[in-house]
Amino acid sequence: MQIFHPSTNTIAKVSIYGAVFFVAGLLWTGNEIQRSSYVTGVGVARPQPVPFSHKHHVSGMGIDCRYCHTTVETAAFAGMPPTETCMSCHSQIWAESPMLEPVRASFRTDQSIQWTRVHDLPEFVYFDHSIHVNKGIGCDTCHGRVDQMPLMWNVKTLQMEWCLECHREPERFVRPREEVFNMNWRPPVDQLTLGRELVRKYQIRKLTDCSICHR
């Protein structure tokens, strides 16, 4: 007895053949989603309690990164400025601005301003700012042109493949130590020559052991 019409043979064959594409498509989609800005947040400005502009403070006023991120050269954590740091200037400048009311309220009441973290590494990763800064990795290598960001966003995925890009070939990214905080520094045409020299000079190892970051 014939249950199926002979034409269903074709459908069966196509569906078996098509399954390969279906699975490949699924994998591709998963991959794309995982690397998309929906997951990584790349280029997505985060809303903050105060619309703090790095562009204004760094490009406009010429304030060094380290004025606020005071521990970036000595500790794992770069340091988020306490409200007192904001008030060093804003006790007098824009002292009446409604936009800065959360800052003044924090200063009055001793309650922390709850900023939204932009660069949020997974907690199974060990990361130390000071070693990177002291070995000649510039701020903008990882954070992008923060001096041109009116609100903060991340320009890199912070995914492991991205970390390894540099940990495998630090000579592609390393710069002279005195240029680390210079946002306008651009790699020279012969970056590899400079990079290899600096890697030797700063004794930078290729750091691809799992336990370097997953400790």
Partner: peptide
């Protein structure tokens, strides 16, 4: 779970 472990990072709420 591994991404957000029950531990405090600096200045975490």
């Amino acid at each position: 779970d591994m991404h957000d472990q029950p531990k405090y990072k600096p200045l975490a709420a």
